[in-house]
Design a protein around this nucleic acid. Structure first.
Lengths: 150, 150
DNA sequence: ATACTATAGTTGCATATGCAACTATTTAGA
DNA sequence: TCTAAATAGTTGCATATGCAACTATAGTAT
Protein backbone atom coordinates (compact mmCIF):
# COMPACT_ATOMS: atom_id res chain seq x y z
CA UNK A 1 0.00 0.00 0.00
CA UNK A 2 1.44 3.33 -0.99
CA UNK A 3 2.01 6.07 1.57
CA UNK A 4 -0.83 8.12 0.18
CA UNK A 5 -3.24 5.22 0.19
CA UNK A 6 -2.16 4.38 3.70
CA UNK A 7 -2.74 7.95 4.80
CA UNK A 8 -6.16 8.06 3.21
CA UNK A 9 -7.22 4.73 4.63
CA UNK A 10 -6.19 5.50 8.18
CA UNK A 11 -7.68 8.94 8.24
CA UNK A 12 -10.98 7.47 7.24
CA UNK A 13 -11.29 5.28 10.31
CA UNK A 14 -9.98 7.74 12.86
CA UNK A 15 -11.79 10.62 11.27
CA UNK A 16 -15.04 8.67 11.03
CA UNK A 17 -14.94 7.79 14.73
CA UNK A 18 -14.16 11.39 15.61
CA UNK A 19 -16.91 12.76 13.39
CA UNK A 20 -19.52 10.21 14.47
CA UNK A 21 -18.95 11.08 18.09
CA UNK A 22 -19.28 14.79 17.49
CA UNK A 23 -22.42 14.21 15.44
CA UNK A 24 -23.97 12.12 18.23
CA UNK A 25 -23.10 14.73 20.83
CA UNK A 26 -24.57 17.46 18.68
CA UNK A 27 -27.80 15.54 17.97
CA UNK A 28 -28.33 14.72 21.65
CA UNK A 29 -27.86 18.35 22.69
CA UNK A 30 -30.18 19.42 19.89
CA UNK A 31 -32.90 16.98 20.97
CA UNK A 32 -32.44 17.99 24.62
CA UNK A 33 -32.58 21.71 23.82
CA UNK A 34 -35.70 21.16 21.70
CA UNK A 35 -37.31 19.68 24.82
CA UNK A 36 -36.15 22.52 27.03
CA UNK A 37 -33.44 20.51 28.76
CA UNK A 38 -29.97 21.93 29.37
CA UNK A 39 -27.60 18.98 29.52
CA UNK A 40 -24.70 17.74 27.39
CA UNK A 41 -24.25 14.14 26.28
CA UNK A 42 -21.20 13.65 28.49
CA UNK A 43 -23.05 15.03 31.51
CA UNK A 44 -25.89 12.64 30.71
CA UNK A 45 -23.44 9.76 30.39
CA UNK A 46 -22.30 10.43 33.95
CA UNK A 47 -25.77 11.18 35.32
CA UNK A 48 -26.97 7.74 34.27
CA UNK A 49 -24.57 5.75 36.46
CA UNK A 50 -25.18 8.19 39.33
CA UNK A 51 -28.86 7.31 39.14
CA UNK A 52 -28.11 3.64 38.67
CA UNK A 53 -25.61 3.21 41.52
CA UNK A 54 -27.45 5.62 43.86
CA UNK A 55 -24.41 6.48 45.94
CA UNK A 56 -21.28 6.04 43.86
CA UNK A 57 -17.81 7.33 44.58
CA UNK A 58 -16.13 9.43 41.94
CA UNK A 59 -13.68 6.63 41.38
CA UNK A 60 -16.52 4.18 40.74
CA UNK A 61 -18.09 6.62 38.30
CA UNK A 62 -14.81 6.98 36.44
CA UNK A 63 -14.54 3.23 36.09
CA UNK A 64 -18.11 2.80 34.97
CA UNK A 65 -17.95 5.67 32.48
CA UNK A 66 -14.44 4.83 31.26
CA UNK A 67 -13.44 8.41 31.99
CA UNK A 68 -10.40 9.89 33.69
CA UNK A 69 -10.91 10.91 37.33
CA UNK A 70 -9.91 14.46 36.41
CA UNK A 71 -12.73 14.68 33.92
CA UNK A 72 -15.21 13.05 36.32
CA UNK A 73 -14.35 15.79 38.84
CA UNK A 74 -15.14 18.48 36.31
CA UNK A 75 -18.33 16.93 34.97
CA UNK A 76 -19.63 16.49 38.53
CA UNK A 77 -18.66 20.12 39.14
CA UNK A 78 -20.91 21.08 36.24
CA UNK A 79 -23.79 18.85 37.40
CA UNK A 80 -23.42 20.28 40.92
CA UNK A 81 -23.46 23.78 39.47
CA UNK A 82 -26.80 22.90 37.84
CA UNK A 83 -28.08 21.54 41.20
CA UNK A 84 -28.58 18.09 39.72
CA UNK A 85 -26.23 16.29 42.16
CA UNK A 86 -24.55 16.79 45.50
CA UNK A 87 -21.27 15.43 46.79
CA UNK A 88 -21.55 13.69 50.17
CA UNK A 89 -18.52 12.82 52.27
CA UNK A 90 -18.21 9.10 52.98
CA UNK A 91 -18.68 8.41 56.70
CA UNK A 92 -16.00 5.75 56.88
CA UNK A 93 -13.32 6.77 54.39
CA UNK A 94 -12.99 10.55 54.35
CA UNK A 95 -11.05 10.51 51.10
CA UNK A 96 -14.17 9.34 49.30
CA UNK A 97 -16.95 11.62 48.08
CA UNK A 98 -20.23 9.99 47.07
CA UNK A 99 -22.33 11.58 44.39
CA UNK A 100 -26.10 11.62 44.83
CA UNK A 101 -28.89 12.94 42.61
CA UNK A 102 -30.95 15.82 43.93
CA UNK A 103 -34.71 15.83 43.39
CA UNK A 104 -34.16 18.08 40.39
CA UNK A 105 -31.58 15.61 39.18
CA UNK A 106 -34.00 12.71 39.45
CA UNK A 107 -36.66 14.71 37.65
CA UNK A 108 -34.24 15.61 34.85
CA UNK A 109 -33.10 12.02 34.61
CA UNK A 110 -36.59 10.82 33.80
CA UNK A 111 -37.27 13.82 31.57
CA UNK A 112 -34.17 13.10 29.49
CA UNK A 113 -34.50 9.32 29.29
CA UNK A 114 -36.94 9.50 26.32
CA UNK A 115 -34.68 12.08 24.67
CA UNK A 116 -31.79 9.67 24.92
CA UNK A 117 -34.03 6.94 23.51
CA UNK A 118 -35.06 9.18 20.60
CA UNK A 119 -31.44 10.06 19.87
CA UNK A 120 -30.46 6.42 20.00
CA UNK A 121 -33.11 5.54 17.43
CA UNK A 122 -31.95 8.34 15.17
CA UNK A 123 -28.33 7.18 15.47
CA UNK A 124 -29.00 3.57 14.54
CA UNK A 125 -31.77 3.99 12.02
CA UNK A 126 -31.56 1.40 9.21
CA UNK A 127 -28.56 -0.31 10.75
CA UNK A 128 -29.08 -4.01 11.43
CA UNK A 129 -28.62 -5.41 14.93
CA UNK A 130 -25.99 -7.75 13.51
CA UNK A 131 -23.92 -4.84 12.18
CA UNK A 132 -24.33 -2.96 15.48
CA UNK A 133 -23.05 -6.03 17.27
CA UNK A 134 -20.00 -6.29 14.99
CA UNK A 135 -19.45 -2.58 15.44
CA UNK A 136 -19.35 -2.88 19.21
CA UNK A 137 -17.12 -5.93 19.06
CA UNK A 138 -14.64 -3.98 16.92
CA UNK A 139 -14.77 -1.02 19.31
CA UNK A 140 -14.14 -3.29 22.27
CA UNK A 141 -11.26 -4.94 20.45
CA UNK A 142 -9.73 -1.55 19.63
CA UNK A 143 -9.98 -0.60 23.32
CA UNK A 144 -8.42 -3.91 24.29
CA UNK A 145 -5.60 -3.39 21.79
CA UNK A 146 -4.84 0.05 23.18
CA UNK A 147 -5.01 -0.78 26.83
CA UNK A 148 -1.52 -1.06 28.29
CA UNK A 149 0.82 -2.77 28.82
CA UNK A 150 2.56 -1.33 25.86
CA UNK B 1 -36.72 -3.23 26.81
CA UNK B 2 -36.77 -1.84 30.31
CA UNK B 3 -35.51 1.66 30.98
CA UNK B 4 -32.46 0.35 32.74
CA UNK B 5 -31.57 -2.08 29.98
CA UNK B 6 -32.11 0.68 27.46
CA UNK B 7 -29.81 2.97 29.41
CA UNK B 8 -27.13 0.34 29.69
CA UNK B 9 -27.30 -0.60 26.03
CA UNK B 10 -27.09 2.93 24.72
CA UNK B 11 -24.29 3.95 27.01
CA UNK B 12 -22.25 1.07 25.79
CA UNK B 13 -22.20 2.25 22.18
CA UNK B 14 -21.74 5.94 22.84
CA UNK B 15 -19.28 5.30 25.60
CA UNK B 16 -17.30 2.80 23.53
CA UNK B 17 -16.95 5.26 20.65
CA UNK B 18 -15.89 7.98 23.06
CA UNK B 19 -13.38 5.75 24.81
CA UNK B 20 -11.95 4.26 21.63
CA UNK B 21 -11.27 7.71 20.26
CA UNK B 22 -9.52 8.87 23.41
CA UNK B 23 -7.47 5.67 23.47
CA UNK B 24 -6.40 6.17 19.86
CA UNK B 25 -5.45 9.77 20.50
CA UNK B 26 -3.46 8.78 23.55
CA UNK B 27 -1.64 5.96 21.77
CA UNK B 28 -0.71 8.16 18.82
CA UNK B 29 0.69 10.90 21.08
CA UNK B 30 2.55 8.25 23.07
CA UNK B 31 4.11 6.78 19.93
CA UNK B 32 4.96 10.25 18.61
CA UNK B 33 6.52 11.33 21.91
CA UNK B 34 8.53 8.12 22.06
CA UNK B 35 9.99 9.11 18.69
CA UNK B 36 10.71 12.65 19.80
CA UNK B 37 7.84 14.20 17.84
CA UNK B 38 5.55 16.81 19.36
CA UNK B 39 2.24 16.55 17.53
CA UNK B 40 -1.29 15.57 18.49
CA UNK B 41 -3.48 13.21 16.50
CA UNK B 42 -5.87 15.98 15.49
CA UNK B 43 -2.99 18.16 14.33
CA UNK B 44 -1.72 15.19 12.33
CA UNK B 45 -5.18 14.63 10.86
CA UNK B 46 -5.08 18.18 9.51
CA UNK B 47 -1.41 18.10 8.48
CA UNK B 48 -2.08 15.14 6.20
CA UNK B 49 -4.55 16.93 3.89
CA UNK B 50 -2.33 20.04 3.91
CA UNK B 51 0.48 17.88 2.53
CA UNK B 52 -1.86 16.12 0.15
CA UNK B 53 -3.58 19.18 -1.34
CA UNK B 54 -0.42 21.31 -1.30
CA UNK B 55 -2.27 24.64 -1.20
CA UNK B 56 -5.65 24.18 0.40
CA UNK B 57 -7.95 26.83 1.75
CA UNK B 58 -9.12 26.52 5.33
CA UNK B 59 -12.61 25.81 4.07
CA UNK B 60 -11.31 22.93 1.95
CA UNK B 61 -9.43 21.53 4.92
CA UNK B 62 -12.56 21.67 7.05
CA UNK B 63 -14.50 19.76 4.43
CA UNK B 64 -11.80 17.15 3.99
CA UNK B 65 -11.24 16.66 7.71
CA UNK B 66 -14.96 16.84 8.59
CA UNK B 67 -14.12 19.52 11.14
CA UNK B 68 -15.78 22.84 11.94
CA UNK B 69 -14.07 25.90 10.42
CA UNK B 70 -13.63 27.31 13.93
CA UNK B 71 -11.63 24.29 14.94
CA UNK B 72 -9.63 24.29 11.70
CA UNK B 73 -8.63 27.88 12.48
CA UNK B 74 -7.35 26.87 15.89
CA UNK B 75 -5.53 23.76 14.77
CA UNK B 76 -3.80 25.73 12.02
CA UNK B 77 -2.94 28.32 14.67
CA UNK B 78 -1.20 25.57 16.63
CA UNK B 79 0.61 24.20 13.56
CA UNK B 80 1.67 27.73 12.64
CA UNK B 81 2.90 28.24 16.20
CA UNK B 82 5.09 25.16 15.71
CA UNK B 83 6.39 26.55 12.39
CA UNK B 84 4.98 23.58 10.50
CA UNK B 85 2.70 25.59 8.20
CA UNK B 86 2.21 29.13 6.96
CA UNK B 87 -0.95 30.89 5.86
CA UNK B 88 -0.71 32.53 2.45
CA UNK B 89 -3.28 35.03 1.19
CA UNK B 90 -4.98 33.96 -2.01
CA UNK B 91 -4.05 36.30 -4.89
CA UNK B 92 -7.51 36.32 -6.42
CA UNK B 93 -9.98 36.04 -3.54
CA UNK B 94 -8.63 37.93 -0.54
CA UNK B 95 -11.07 36.26 1.84
CA UNK B 96 -9.23 32.98 1.28
CA UNK B 97 -6.10 31.92 3.13
CA UNK B 98 -4.17 28.98 1.76
CA UNK B 99 -2.22 26.75 4.10
CA UNK B 100 1.18 25.50 3.04
CA UNK B 101 3.68 23.22 4.76
CA UNK B 102 7.03 24.72 5.70
CA UNK B 103 10.22 22.69 5.18
CA UNK B 104 10.03 21.69 8.83
CA UNK B 105 6.42 20.68 8.25
CA UNK B 106 7.35 18.48 5.30
CA UNK B 107 10.13 16.91 7.32
CA UNK B 108 7.79 16.21 10.24
CA UNK B 109 5.18 14.82 7.89
CA UNK B 110 7.56 12.12 6.66
CA UNK B 111 8.93 11.55 10.15
CA UNK B 112 5.46 10.94 11.55
CA UNK B 113 4.08 8.84 8.70
CA UNK B 114 5.63 5.62 10.06
CA UNK B 115 4.40 6.53 13.55
CA UNK B 116 0.89 6.81 12.21
CA UNK B 117 1.36 3.47 10.47
CA UNK B 118 2.58 1.86 13.68
CA UNK B 119 -0.37 3.26 15.61
CA UNK B 120 -2.77 2.06 12.94
CA UNK B 121 -1.38 -1.45 13.21
CA UNK B 122 -1.72 -1.38 16.99
CA UNK B 123 -5.31 -0.16 16.73
CA UNK B 124 -6.48 -2.87 14.37
CA UNK B 125 -4.42 -5.80 15.57
CA UNK B 126 -6.35 -9.10 15.31
CA UNK B 127 -9.38 -7.45 13.75
CA UNK B 128 -10.34 -8.89 10.39
CA UNK B 129 -10.57 -6.68 7.32
CA UNK B 130 -14.18 -7.77 6.97
CA UNK B 131 -15.05 -6.52 10.46
CA UNK B 132 -13.14 -3.27 9.83
CA UNK B 133 -15.19 -2.80 6.70
CA UNK B 134 -18.48 -3.37 8.54
CA UNK B 135 -17.27 -1.01 11.24
CA UNK B 136 -16.63 1.78 8.76
CA UNK B 137 -19.94 1.16 7.01
CA UNK B 138 -21.76 1.52 10.34
CA UNK B 139 -19.85 4.72 11.16
CA UNK B 140 -20.69 6.18 7.77
CA UNK B 141 -24.34 5.22 8.24
CA UNK B 142 -24.41 6.87 11.68
CA UNK B 143 -22.96 10.03 10.14
CA UNK B 144 -25.52 9.87 7.35
CA UNK B 145 -28.34 9.40 9.90
CA UNK B 146 -27.22 12.44 11.87
CA UNK B 147 -26.58 14.79 9.00
CA UNK B 148 -29.44 17.27 8.74
CA UNK B 149 -32.11 17.92 7.65
CA UNK B 150 -33.77 17.15 10.89
C1' DA C 1 3.73 4.77 67.40
C1' DT C 2 5.85 6.42 63.37
C1' DA C 3 7.25 6.72 58.71
C1' DC C 4 6.44 5.39 54.19
C1' DT C 5 3.37 4.09 50.45
C1' DA C 6 -0.95 4.17 48.29
C1' DT C 7 -5.35 6.16 47.28
C1' DA C 8 -9.32 9.71 46.36
C1' DG C 9 -10.02 13.76 44.61
C1' DT C 10 -8.49 18.60 42.95
C1' DT C 11 -6.11 22.10 40.17
C1' DG C 12 -3.04 24.27 36.55
C1' DC C 13 -1.83 23.99 31.92
C1' DA C 14 -2.52 22.34 27.54
C1' DT C 15 -5.46 20.44 23.49
C1' DA C 16 -10.07 19.84 20.97
C1' DT C 17 -14.76 21.31 20.08
C1' DG C 18 -19.06 24.19 18.56
C1' DC C 19 -22.29 28.17 18.77
C1' DA C 20 -22.91 32.87 17.96
C1' DA C 21 -21.32 37.08 16.66
C1' DC C 22 -17.93 39.48 14.44
C1' DT C 23 -14.72 41.61 10.35
C1' DA C 24 -13.33 41.71 5.62
C1' DT C 25 -14.22 40.47 1.05
C1' DT C 26 -16.89 38.71 -2.91
C1' DT C 27 -21.11 37.97 -5.42
C1' DA C 28 -25.68 38.91 -6.95
C1' DG C 29 -29.50 41.69 -7.95
C1' DA C 30 -31.87 45.94 -8.77
C1' DT D 1 -23.30 51.67 -9.91
C1' DC D 2 -24.83 50.68 -5.48
C1' DT D 3 -26.83 47.89 -1.96
C1' DA D 4 -27.84 43.61 0.11
C1' DA D 5 -26.68 38.89 0.68
C1' DA D 6 -23.31 35.43 0.92
C1' DT D 7 -18.79 33.69 2.02
C1' DA D 8 -13.99 32.97 4.42
C1' DG D 9 -12.01 33.26 8.42
C1' DT D 10 -11.62 34.90 13.48
C1' DT D 11 -12.81 35.44 18.39
C1' DG D 12 -15.37 35.00 22.89
C1' DC D 13 -17.58 31.82 25.74
C1' DA D 14 -18.69 27.35 26.92
C1' DT D 15 -17.85 22.05 27.24
C1' DA D 16 -14.61 17.86 27.26
C1' DT D 17 -10.07 15.85 27.90
C1' DG D 18 -5.42 14.22 30.04
C1' DC D 19 -0.85 14.87 32.26
C1' DA D 20 1.52 16.20 36.21
C1' DA D 21 1.63 17.87 40.59
C1' DC D 22 -0.82 18.78 44.50
C1' DT D 23 -3.63 18.02 49.26
C1' DA D 24 -5.87 15.07 52.48
C1' DT D 25 -6.65 10.59 54.16
C1' DA D 26 -6.04 5.50 54.68
C1' DG D 27 -3.17 1.39 54.80
C1' DT D 28 1.11 -1.04 55.61
C1' DA D 29 5.46 -2.13 57.51
C1' DT D 30 8.86 -1.60 60.97
Amino acid sequence: MTEEASLKFHMNMGMLINSAQRAMTKRFVQNATDSGQDISLDQWMVLGPIWQLESASQKELGEMCLKDKTNITRIIDALEQKNLVVRVEDQIDHRIKRVVLTNAGKQLFFDVLPIMEKTREEVRKDISNKDIETFKVVLSKILENLTDAK
